[in-house]
Amino acid sequence: MGLAQNVVFGLVTGSYIAIAAIGFTLIYGIVNMINFAYGEFITIGAFVGILASGTLSLPLPIAALVAMVGGGLVSLVLARGFFTPINHTGPVPLLLTSIGLGLALRNAVRLVAGRGARYFDTSATTYRFEGLPDLPVGSVDLLGNLFVTSLQLVVVGSAVAVFLLLYTLLTRTDVGIAMRALADDEDLARVRGIDTQRVRDSVWMLAGVLAGLAGVLIGIQTNVSAGIGFSFVLQILAAAILGGAGSPYGAIAGSYVIGLVLALSTAFLPSGMTGISSAIAFLVLVIVLLVKPSGIAGREVREA
């Protein structure tokens, strides 16, 4: 397999990480907390999607919408129940609470849904590009034959749609501008008459909607199990920090860096070492932070 094929894999992985990382980083920037339970939001969204498409036999796009609505509501209810009441206590209690909540949710899902993996009932068309030149450089083929599945296109297309809608929301709507205002200066937001709790609620909803979509997209690419969201949470965290914590556009860039590094290191590391591809992703994170502590797009972390 050539480099081009692995770039395709990396873009797909980067796409669903990006959707999730946007939600994660909005919570970080606006609610001012690191939400370690975010992986479970993804898991719950994925299971809502499985229920909708499997048990209710809804078509996949509708099931994805149901998962997004479900993810948004679950996120809001959990935030109202566990995070909003202790919002004033600061980032560390919020972080610890989210770790505990994530653990509890993960095991609750395992209890209800069991340990097995579920699959979305999907049919994919595979587009093959044969007869492309290999363009070998050493042992690596730069191009070579490659394929793209319709599901991969759905994942990447969904991500692009999310980016455009997010940009529109954050720059064209009152609630989106209020979200950015809240990230800048909460007191001034209140002086402008903004109901900050309502804006935070909207952020939780939005983050949950994105988690639900990410859950379904991860599910159609791989499978759905109780640990699916948790297995991605460190990569999401890495992508968000890499991009500059709190910056949604930075998180998008960070996600594609992580996605590409994961895919390329899996493909080109010696066969015995493919297990360390996530470690490579974190190595990239460490190096970027050493060179530019504020991340790719970030404002100074110290100022935040």
Binding site: D174, A178, D184, D187
Partner: peptide, 24 residues
């Protein structure tokens, strides 16, 4: 109320700041 410091949102544009001025 115009606070002494931190009286505009620095990462928002002038137009967006004015839009939030009329938020209510």
């Amino acid at each position: 109320y115009v606070p002494q410091s931190g009286n505009v949102f620095p990462s928002l544009t002038v137009a967006e700041n004015l839009r939030l001025g009329a938020y209510i």
